[in-house]
Protein backbone atom coordinates (compact mmCIF):
# COMPACT_ATOMS: atom_id res chain seq x y z
CA UNK A 1 0.00 0.00 0.00
CA UNK A 2 1.22 3.45 -0.79
CA UNK A 3 1.87 5.64 2.18
CA UNK A 4 -0.49 8.20 0.69
CA UNK A 5 -3.35 5.70 0.88
CA UNK A 6 -2.52 4.74 4.43
CA UNK A 7 -2.53 8.39 5.36
CA UNK A 8 -5.95 8.90 3.80
CA UNK A 9 -7.26 6.06 5.95
CA UNK A 10 -6.05 7.83 9.05
CA UNK A 11 -7.14 11.28 7.98
CA UNK A 12 -10.74 11.30 9.31
CA UNK A 13 -9.67 10.07 12.74
CA UNK A 14 -6.80 12.53 12.71
CA UNK A 15 -9.09 15.46 11.93
CA UNK A 16 -11.39 14.48 14.76
CA UNK A 17 -8.47 14.22 17.15
CA UNK A 18 -7.11 17.61 16.19
CA UNK A 19 -10.50 19.31 16.30
CA UNK A 20 -11.73 17.97 19.60
CA UNK A 21 -8.55 17.04 21.45
CA UNK A 22 -5.59 19.10 20.29
CA UNK A 23 -7.25 22.48 19.74
CA UNK A 24 -8.88 22.57 23.19
CA UNK A 25 -5.45 22.02 24.67
CA UNK A 26 -4.24 25.15 22.87
CA UNK A 27 -7.15 27.03 24.40
CA UNK A 28 -6.14 25.65 27.77
CA UNK A 29 -2.57 26.86 27.40
CA UNK A 30 -3.64 30.24 26.06
CA UNK A 31 -6.09 30.78 28.93
CA UNK A 32 -3.45 29.99 31.49
CA UNK A 33 -1.58 33.12 30.41
CA UNK A 34 -4.56 35.42 30.78
CA UNK A 35 -5.80 37.42 33.72
CA UNK A 36 -8.95 36.64 35.70
CA UNK A 37 -11.67 39.22 36.24
CA UNK A 38 -14.18 38.22 38.95
CA UNK A 39 -17.76 37.74 37.84
CA UNK A 40 -17.08 37.26 34.14
CA UNK A 41 -15.69 34.64 31.81
CA UNK A 42 -14.00 37.13 29.55
CA UNK A 43 -10.37 37.90 30.16
CA UNK A 44 -8.82 41.21 29.17
CA UNK A 45 -6.40 40.92 26.24
CA UNK A 46 -2.77 40.61 27.03
CA UNK A 47 -0.28 38.12 28.27
CA UNK A 48 0.49 37.56 31.91
CA UNK A 49 2.62 35.18 33.91
CA UNK A 50 0.75 36.08 37.06
CA UNK A 51 -1.12 32.76 37.33
CA UNK A 52 2.07 30.76 37.24
CA UNK A 53 3.90 33.06 39.62
CA UNK A 54 1.00 32.67 42.00
CA UNK A 55 1.11 28.89 41.72
CA UNK A 56 4.80 28.71 42.49
CA UNK A 57 4.79 31.21 45.33
CA UNK A 58 1.64 30.23 47.23
CA UNK A 59 2.30 27.22 49.45
CA UNK A 60 -1.37 26.28 49.35
CA UNK A 61 -1.13 24.93 45.80
CA UNK A 62 1.90 22.90 46.74
CA UNK A 63 -0.03 21.44 49.64
CA UNK A 64 -2.83 20.38 47.27
CA UNK A 65 -0.30 18.82 44.89
CA UNK A 66 1.41 17.08 47.79
CA UNK A 67 -1.80 15.70 49.20
CA UNK A 68 -2.71 14.40 45.76
CA UNK A 69 0.66 12.70 45.49
CA UNK A 70 0.40 11.24 48.98
CA UNK A 71 -3.09 9.82 48.45
CA UNK A 72 -2.09 8.40 45.07
CA UNK A 73 1.08 6.87 46.45
CA UNK A 74 -0.69 5.16 49.34
CA UNK A 75 -3.47 3.92 47.05
CA UNK A 76 -1.01 2.55 44.50
CA UNK A 77 0.95 0.75 47.19
CA UNK A 78 -2.17 -0.82 48.67
CA UNK A 79 -3.35 -1.80 45.21
CA UNK A 80 -0.02 -3.48 44.56
CA UNK A 81 -0.19 -5.44 47.80
CA UNK A 82 -3.80 -6.48 47.27
CA UNK A 83 -3.54 -7.33 43.61
CA UNK A 84 -0.62 -9.72 44.01
CA UNK A 85 -2.43 -12.56 45.81
CA UNK A 86 -5.47 -12.03 43.61
CA UNK A 87 -3.41 -12.20 40.42
CA UNK A 88 -1.52 -15.27 41.58
CA UNK A 89 -4.81 -16.95 42.40
CA UNK A 90 -6.35 -16.04 39.04
CA UNK A 91 -3.28 -17.03 37.04
CA UNK A 92 -3.42 -20.53 38.51
CA UNK A 93 -7.01 -21.17 37.37
CA UNK A 94 -7.98 -22.94 34.17
CA UNK A 95 -8.66 -20.68 31.20
CA UNK A 96 -12.48 -20.64 31.61
CA UNK A 97 -12.49 -19.92 35.33
CA UNK A 98 -9.74 -17.39 34.80
CA UNK A 99 -11.91 -15.50 32.36
CA UNK A 100 -14.78 -15.53 34.82
CA UNK A 101 -12.65 -14.09 37.62
CA UNK A 102 -11.07 -11.52 35.35
CA UNK A 103 -14.57 -10.42 34.36
CA UNK A 104 -15.53 -10.03 38.01
CA UNK A 105 -12.38 -7.99 38.58
CA UNK A 106 -13.14 -5.58 35.77
CA UNK A 107 -16.70 -4.92 36.95
CA UNK A 108 -15.80 -1.87 39.04
CA UNK A 109 -14.24 -0.30 35.96
CA UNK A 110 -16.97 -0.98 33.44
CA UNK A 111 -19.73 -0.62 36.03
CA UNK A 112 -19.12 3.08 36.13
CA UNK A 113 -17.32 5.25 38.63
CA UNK A 114 -20.56 6.85 39.74
CA UNK A 115 -22.22 3.61 40.80
CA UNK A 116 -19.11 2.50 42.67
CA UNK A 117 -18.89 5.85 44.40
CA UNK A 118 -22.51 5.70 45.41
CA UNK A 119 -21.97 2.20 46.79
CA UNK A 120 -18.99 3.40 48.78
CA UNK A 121 -20.97 6.34 50.05
CA UNK A 122 -23.57 3.98 51.48
CA UNK A 123 -20.87 1.69 52.82
CA UNK A 124 -18.71 4.32 54.47
CA UNK A 125 -21.33 6.70 55.86
CA UNK A 126 -21.18 7.25 59.59
CA UNK A 127 -24.25 5.09 60.00
CA UNK A 128 -23.60 3.11 56.87
CA UNK A 129 -22.93 -0.53 56.09
CA UNK A 130 -19.34 -0.84 57.27
CA UNK A 131 -19.81 0.95 60.59
CA UNK A 132 -22.98 -1.04 61.27
CA UNK A 133 -21.14 -4.30 60.71
CA UNK A 134 -18.12 -3.26 62.76
CA UNK A 135 -20.34 -2.07 65.60
CA UNK A 136 -22.44 -5.22 65.49
CA UNK A 137 -19.49 -7.57 65.81
CA UNK A 138 -18.04 -5.39 68.53
CA UNK A 139 -14.82 -4.40 66.79
CA UNK A 140 -15.46 -0.73 67.47
CA UNK A 141 -17.60 1.08 70.00
CA UNK A 142 -17.89 4.40 68.12
CA UNK A 143 -18.60 4.75 64.41
CA UNK A 144 -15.48 5.62 62.43
CA UNK A 145 -15.57 8.67 60.17
CA UNK A 146 -14.58 7.55 56.69
CA UNK A 147 -16.28 10.13 54.51
CA UNK A 148 -14.44 13.40 54.28
CA UNK A 149 -11.14 11.81 55.23
CA UNK A 150 -8.14 10.75 53.18
CA UNK A 151 -8.77 7.17 54.26
CA UNK A 152 -12.23 7.21 52.70
CA UNK A 153 -10.89 8.60 49.44
CA UNK A 154 -8.12 6.00 49.40
CA UNK A 155 -10.56 3.14 49.92
CA UNK A 156 -12.57 4.37 46.96
CA UNK A 157 -9.50 4.82 44.75
CA UNK A 158 -8.10 1.38 45.60
CA UNK A 159 -11.29 -0.35 44.58
CA UNK A 160 -11.75 1.79 41.48
CA UNK A 161 -8.31 1.20 40.01
CA UNK A 162 -7.35 -2.27 41.25
CA UNK A 163 -8.32 -3.83 37.88
CA UNK A 164 -5.64 -1.72 36.19
CA UNK A 165 -3.03 -3.59 38.19
CA UNK A 166 -4.56 -7.06 38.20
CA UNK A 167 -4.68 -7.28 34.41
CA UNK A 168 -1.01 -6.60 33.56
CA UNK A 169 0.11 -8.51 36.64
CA UNK A 170 -1.90 -11.60 35.76
CA UNK A 171 -0.62 -11.60 32.22
CA UNK A 172 3.00 -11.37 33.33
CA UNK A 173 2.43 -14.13 35.87
CA UNK A 174 0.99 -16.29 33.08
CA UNK A 175 4.13 -15.80 31.02
CA UNK A 176 6.39 -17.23 33.70
CA UNK A 177 7.68 -20.60 32.67
CA UNK A 178 6.38 -23.16 35.18
CA UNK A 179 9.45 -25.31 34.53
CA UNK A 180 11.76 -22.65 35.93
CA UNK A 181 9.81 -22.50 39.15
CA UNK A 182 9.55 -26.28 39.40
CA UNK A 183 13.27 -26.66 38.72
CA UNK A 184 14.10 -24.19 41.46
CA UNK A 185 11.80 -26.03 43.85
CA UNK A 186 13.34 -29.39 42.99
CA UNK A 187 16.78 -27.94 43.62
CA UNK A 188 15.61 -27.11 47.11
CA UNK A 189 14.74 -23.44 46.88
CA UNK A 190 12.22 -22.36 49.52
CA UNK A 191 8.93 -20.71 48.72
CA UNK A 192 10.22 -17.25 49.59
CA UNK A 193 13.44 -17.73 47.64
CA UNK A 194 11.44 -18.71 44.58
CA UNK A 195 9.22 -15.71 45.00
CA UNK A 196 11.95 -13.15 45.60
CA UNK A 197 14.45 -14.54 43.07
CA UNK A 198 12.17 -15.74 40.29
CA UNK A 199 8.50 -14.85 40.43
CA UNK A 200 8.76 -11.27 41.59
CA UNK A 201 11.59 -10.17 39.27
CA UNK A 202 9.80 -11.73 36.31
CA UNK A 203 6.59 -9.86 37.04
CA UNK A 204 8.37 -6.55 37.46
CA UNK A 205 7.44 -5.30 33.97
CA UNK A 206 3.78 -6.01 34.72
CA UNK A 207 4.06 -4.36 38.11
CA UNK A 208 5.70 -1.31 36.59
CA UNK A 209 3.11 -0.97 33.83
CA UNK A 210 0.25 -1.41 36.29
CA UNK A 211 1.71 0.99 38.83
CA UNK A 212 2.13 3.75 36.29
CA UNK A 213 -1.46 3.34 35.09
CA UNK A 214 -2.86 3.22 38.60
CA UNK A 215 -0.76 6.10 39.88
CA UNK A 216 -1.76 8.38 37.02
CA UNK A 217 -5.41 7.45 37.45
CA UNK A 218 -5.27 8.23 41.17
CA UNK A 219 -3.48 11.53 40.61
CA UNK A 220 -6.18 12.86 38.34
CA UNK A 221 -9.24 11.16 39.80
CA UNK A 222 -12.14 13.48 40.32
CA UNK A 223 -15.38 11.68 41.09
CA UNK A 224 -14.05 9.58 43.96
CA UNK A 225 -12.29 12.34 45.93
CA UNK A 226 -15.14 14.75 45.28
CA UNK A 227 -17.90 12.42 46.49
CA UNK A 228 -16.08 10.54 49.23
CA UNK A 229 -14.02 13.55 50.34
CA UNK A 230 -17.21 15.59 50.76
CA UNK A 231 -15.56 18.84 49.86
CA UNK A 232 -13.12 18.52 52.73
CA UNK A 233 -10.33 16.76 50.87
CA UNK A 234 -8.97 19.06 48.21
CA UNK A 235 -6.90 17.20 45.64
CA UNK A 236 -5.88 18.12 42.13
CA UNK A 237 -9.14 17.04 40.48
CA UNK A 238 -11.49 18.61 42.99
CA UNK A 239 -9.61 21.90 43.08
CA UNK A 240 -9.48 22.14 39.30
CA UNK A 241 -13.23 21.50 39.23
CA UNK A 242 -13.97 24.03 41.95
CA UNK A 243 -12.05 26.74 40.17
CA UNK A 244 -13.35 25.93 36.69
CA UNK A 245 -17.01 25.28 37.43
CA UNK A 246 -17.88 26.96 40.72
CA UNK A 247 -15.65 30.02 40.92
CA UNK A 248 -15.43 30.18 37.10
CA UNK A 249 -11.79 31.15 37.35
CA UNK A 250 -10.71 29.56 34.08
CA UNK A 251 -7.25 31.14 33.97
CA UNK A 252 -6.37 29.70 37.36
CA UNK A 253 -7.81 26.25 36.70
CA UNK A 254 -5.97 26.13 33.37
CA UNK A 255 -2.60 27.09 34.77
CA UNK A 256 -3.17 24.91 37.83
CA UNK A 257 -3.64 21.81 35.69
CA UNK A 258 -0.88 22.59 33.20
CA UNK A 259 1.56 23.17 36.02
CA UNK A 260 0.62 19.85 37.59
CA UNK A 261 1.11 17.99 34.31
CA UNK A 262 4.53 19.57 33.92
CA UNK A 263 5.47 18.57 37.46
CA UNK A 264 4.39 14.98 36.84
CA UNK A 265 6.24 14.84 33.53
CA UNK A 266 9.41 16.15 35.17
CA UNK A 267 9.08 13.73 38.06
CA UNK A 268 8.60 10.73 35.81
CA UNK A 269 11.55 11.81 33.68
CA UNK A 270 13.76 11.94 36.76
CA UNK A 271 12.50 8.59 38.01
CA UNK A 272 13.10 6.89 34.67
CA UNK A 273 16.63 8.33 34.40
CA UNK A 274 17.45 7.20 37.93
CA UNK A 275 16.04 3.75 37.24
CA UNK A 276 18.09 3.41 34.09
CA UNK A 277 21.23 4.47 35.95
CA UNK A 278 20.53 1.92 38.66
CA UNK A 279 19.92 -0.81 36.13
CA UNK A 280 23.16 0.01 34.35
CA UNK A 281 25.11 -0.13 37.56
CA UNK A 282 23.62 -3.47 38.48
CA UNK A 283 24.26 -4.76 34.98
CA UNK A 284 27.95 -4.01 35.29
Amino acid sequence: MKSRHAFYLMLPALCMLVLIFVIPLFFLVAKSFQAYVPGTLVSPPGFTLENYINLVSDPYYWSVYLRTLRISFVSTLVILVLSYPLSVFISKRKARTRGFFLTLVILPMIGGAMIQTMGWFATLMRYGFLNSVLLAIGLISEPITFLGTELGVEIGLVQAFLPMMVYPLTSSLLQIDRDVVDAARTLGAGRFTVFSKITFPLTLPGVAAGSVLVFMACLTGFVTPSSLGQGKIQVFGTYAYQQAMQVMNWPLSSSFSIFFIILIALASLIVSVVCRKCAERRGR
Binding site: I20, F21, P24, L25, F26, F27, L28, K31, T220, F222, F236, G237, A240, Y241, A244, M245, W250, S253, S254, S257, I258, F260, I261
Partner: peptide, 9 residues
Protein backbone atom coordinates in the same frame (compact mmCIF):
# COMPACT_ATOMS: atom_id res chain seq x y z
CA UNK B 1 -9.91 16.56 33.68
CA UNK B 2 -7.13 18.65 32.15
CA UNK B 3 -8.53 18.15 28.69
CA UNK B 4 -12.03 18.89 30.01
CA UNK B 5 -10.98 22.31 31.28
CA UNK B 6 -9.71 23.14 27.80
CA UNK B 7 -12.81 21.64 26.27
CA UNK B 8 -15.31 23.82 28.16
CA UNK B 9 -13.47 26.94 27.02
Amino acid sequence: IVWAIGLIQ
